[in-house]
């Protein structure tokens, strides 16, 4: 019954987000657009972390591969945002298969370290090839190469960003909700509960982990690609370690229901850290850590412990 309610909440959330838009001041509209894009990343991360209990510290690379795939295509090849979006998602899908093939064979802390190293390698590569990628400074896309540019005749820049990210997020929420209620979703949960038992029932758990990791990476990359194509900017900063750690916080803060948790957590961390910007000089990590501490200290305690316990216990 609780599952059904959270599924319903997941479908109501996008409507609520659309409804509040007219009420928001301009600054909050811009802020929310950014957060909605990141929420897609949050869902992507949750597919790996929350559904199968694998804690990756390298998802920034998957986000960034979507961003670079889309951005570099739009910058160098053709200013076509739709094609660029597909290229971005394809790039991150390929990269997650590669990452996944290696890292899902090992467990626990090796998985974390492996994903961390792989993503740092990508980050350094992005810096090293700065003539192509623009390095830390990044590249600015021509307006017609962006989604905002393509929607220019119809919508203002602000509206285009908000509603494109909301539309994409809605699709992601629907897909994740369907996934969590599907047979594959049940297998993912079973894998998180007891990998050895699932293996003993004849299931190929390495393949399942790879599938989950790839779905997770594709969604993270979609978020990166949208980011590039809605803001017309790509930069190596997004491939850095901070961008790998933040989704861990979002998912932990979001709570146990994967249909709505990743959105709620991402909203909470980012909106609060924006509020606290003046006080704490905008330290997302400080705020996030505070929220995690809060989550641990309240009713979420058991859930969060279990999730972290599972991630650590894979040895």
């Amino acid at each position: 019954m609780r599952v059904k309610i959270s599924a319903l909440a997941a479908l109501v959330a996008p409507l609520a987000l659309a409804a509040v838009y007219p009420l928001l001041p301009e600054y909050q509209r811009a802020l929310m657009s950014r957060v909605l894009i990141l929420s897609i990343y949050s869902y992507g991360y949750a597919v790996c972390f929350q559904m199968i209990g694998l804690m990756s510290l390298g998802h920034a690379a998957l986000f960034a591969s979507g961003m670079y795939g889309a951005g570099l295509y739009a910058f160098y090849v053709s200013p076509d945002p739709l094609a660029a979006l597909l290229v971005g998602v394809a790039a991150s899908t390929l990269l997650s298969i590669l990452f996944g093939l290696v890292s899902t064979r090992v467990g626990g802390s090796y998985f974390m370290i492996g994903t961390l190293l792989a993503s740092q390698a990508l980050y350094l590569a992005a810096l090293h090839f700065n003539e192509v990628t623009g390095g830390e400074q990044g590249l600015v896309l021509k307006k017609e190469a962006t989604i905002v540019g393509a929607l220019g005749p119809l919508l203002s820049e602000l509206d285009a960003r908000y509603f494109t990210s909301l539309a994409a997020l809605t699709i992601v929420i629907v897909c994740v909700t369907i996934l969590s209620h599907s047979r594959l979703g049940r297998l993912f949960h079973a894998l998180r509960d007891d990998e050895g038992k699932l293996e003993a029932l004849g299931y190929n758990t390495s393949a399942l982990k790879l599938v989950a990791f790839t779905i997770s990476g594709a969604l993270s990359g979609a978020s990166g690609a949208l980011q590039a194509l809605l803001y017309g900017y790509i930069g190596a900063g997004y491939a850095g370690i901070l961008n790998s750690v933040e989704p861990v916080l979002w998912v932990l803060v979001g709570g146990p229901y994967i249909q709505v948790g990743p959105l709620l957590g991402c909203l909470a961390v980012n909106l609060l850290s924006d509020l606290a910007r003046g006080l704490l000089r905008g330290h997302v990590l400080t705020v996030g850590a505070g929220l995690v501490a809060f989550a641990f200290a309240t009713g979420r305690l058991r859930w969060a412990y279990r999730l972290l316990g599972v991630s650590r216990g894979r040895g």
Binding site: R186, L187, L198
Partner: peptide, 13 residues
């Protein structure tokens, strides 16, 4: 058994 699944889902898997 798989704690987060129902009895039916466990048997089904």
């Amino acid at each position: 058994v798989f704690q987060s699944l129902t009895v039916y889902e466990n048997l089904e898997l």
